[in-house]
Design a protein around this nucleic acid. Sequence first.
DNA 1: CATGAATGAGTGTTCATTCAT
DNA 2: GATGAATGAACACTCATTCAT
Lengths: 195, 195, 195, 195
Amino acid sequence: MKKNKPKYNQIIEAAVEVIAENGYHASQVSKIARKAGVADGTIYLYFRNKEDILVSVFEEKMGQFIEKIARGISEKNNADEKLLTLIEMHFRQLADDHHLAIVTQLELRQSNKDLRLKINHILKPYLAVIDDIIKEGTREKIFRDNMNVQLIRQMIFGTLDEIVTNWVMKEEKYDLLEQSSDVHEFIMSGLSAKK
Amino acid sequence: MKKNKPKYNQIIEAAVEVIAENGYHASQVSKIARKAGVADGTIYLYFRNKEDILVSVFEEKMGQFIEKIARGISEKNNADEKLLTLIEMHFRQLADDHHLAIVTQLELRQSNKDLRLKINHILKPYLAVIDDIIKEGTREKIFRDNMNVQLIRQMIFGTLDEIVTNWVMKEEKYDLLEQSSDVHEFIMSGLSAKK
Amino acid sequence: MKKNKPKYNQIIEAAVEVIAENGYHASQVSKIARKAGVADGTIYLYFRNKEDILVSVFEEKMGQFIEKIARGISEKNNADEKLLTLIEMHFRQLADDHHLAIVTQLELRQSNKDLRLKINHILKPYLAVIDDIIKEGTREKIFRDNMNVQLIRQMIFGTLDEIVTNWVMKEEKYDLLEQSSDVHEFIMSGLSAKK
Amino acid sequence: MKKNKPKYNQIIEAAVEVIAENGYHASQVSKIARKAGVADGTIYLYFRNKEDILVSVFEEKMGQFIEKIARGISEKNNADEKLLTLIEMHFRQLADDHHLAIVTQLELRQSNKDLRLKINHILKPYLAVIDDIIKEGTREKIFRDNMNVQLIRQMIFGTLDEIVTNWVMKEEKYDLLEQSSDVHEFIMSGLSAKK
DNA sequence: CATGAATGAGTGTTCATTCAT
DNA sequence: GATGAATGAACACTCATTCAT
């Protein structure tokens, strides 16, 4: 949410809707402008080019996404609870925002390498949150020692991402949140120190 | 490998190379034709349209990919060993074919929803192989009961896929195969019945 | 006239007409294509881009222009007659081709610096023809010694060019060719060795 | 210099600089406004539109140009000296104002037919000055009789203009003023009554 | 007088696909 | 079967001008 630039936010919101409804490749700048209620040229007062709109969409939305999760986690006292919170909030936020789910799981992945690299960059803070949970669990001795944090994080993120993507592709026919405890149990057992 | 149509295979191989070298969006039909040593029009004697080339590329390559894994697994006697074999062969086949890894993990994901649905369809036999291992492990009582097979399979596939994608994006700088045992341990612990 | 590429010449001719009729800035590629009776895309099989069309127009037309003058001059036996021939043919060729006159004197001058540099390059052979006459006249002792050939050539070309441009801007209301002898006399007197 | 409107002159001067530095086509109104230190909208309090700025630039600058030459000539007593003065001052004024030379010889020529007609109109007083010298020379019997004044004037102006343009295009690498006497001699001989 | 945010018309170029030879 | 010349739809971005403040 950039300062008090109402047009900036109008355009961001319009972009999410247009991409969710039309698909990445059919999302012309003029369509976004029309939905935002501004002229085509106005877009370029707030964004350098079309790619900049898309990067900003992801930036703004992921910013909120991560911030909420980080806040939720900070109230929990151990890695176990934190992981459950992360899973639940990851699922809930996407389940609650139909358009956002389509855009992040399906449409934005069709972008070219450049844009994907930028998206990966934006994703980093979220990956760092996951890393922190892993490290905390190791300190708390509830996770095994000597784990490759980067690999574990890839497995956790890959698991969550694939589950959400499948849910979106199945047109969100079932309850995503219900899966949380199974996923949590799978990951916790996978990392557990006991054995 | 379709029948004995040499041009068909020339075009498939050319497509993999062209996409790996130029990226999805810079892979024009004319470029594929040139690399395959045929005229542009000839492409359309073997494929309905550009999407059909890409689907066929995935179909042919995944066909071999799955077949090899299925064969490797059939020689193993329990779910534990089968899972390890699947992980190792999944990693090894992509580590051994640089072009294929780039195409499947990065480039083909840029396709539109239609193409991705077709790709998912082609992937089904592989997902079925994973499902079979899960079911076998449950029968063997080495996995927990009452697991949601579909969910577990998504977590396993998501884990493997994310790890390979990260490895490709990091320009294959480290050894992918080395990760196999950690991944296997993570998943096995996650599914394990003991506790 | 390039080889036997009929489309190439159709496009060149169409470009001259379109520019003469609509002006430089209103000469869209699609308008040229329509007048040439080809599809927009066909233009790009024969020309790299729009500028290449314009350069080629000038190249082809000036090529013929210069060639004819060079041929005409070669039949003359002294600098005096050669100069008269050059003036007459310069005027006649533009007087005979209304469209070409408008394009070269008015429209193509609106091009940007890049294009103008290329046009100047194409003009060089013509300037060389003028230089040769000046040198010949000096050898024949009918022109003064010690003249700055480059400067003289600029004066001659500037004179002819300004006269034609004025004639085109006055909508070709009077007879351009009639001016030839006065211009010839002016230049000859200006260069004459007698004094 | 219009009235006592300081902003008017700021904009005129800014326009010359911007055009000289960026070229005709890259000289946006907003760039001129920024250089002039006024808001975009302010431009339109002093000029009807962009073309009006350019016409006014030429008007103001040519007004001074012509006035100085007319004053210089009025001090001379015969057509011969007046012509030399005109040539020298024409060359000197452009040699002394780098920006003006670029703008008048190269950039403003890229304008469309409309603007060029207006520029020609502004040029008329200068052409009249040349005409007067020609007529005076004829009266003084130092020029031939029966000359087509308009044609002679075109030749003189064309000569001077082409020489200056060449000098600007050669990036003003040599001394323009040095050419004056040769040019004067060429024209005088060309018009001379003796023979 | 002065501002500057907002407007919206206009166009060169690519490339998947066709079809006459 | 094979060719490759020809097609034509589709779209991001700039910038002169306006007008509410």
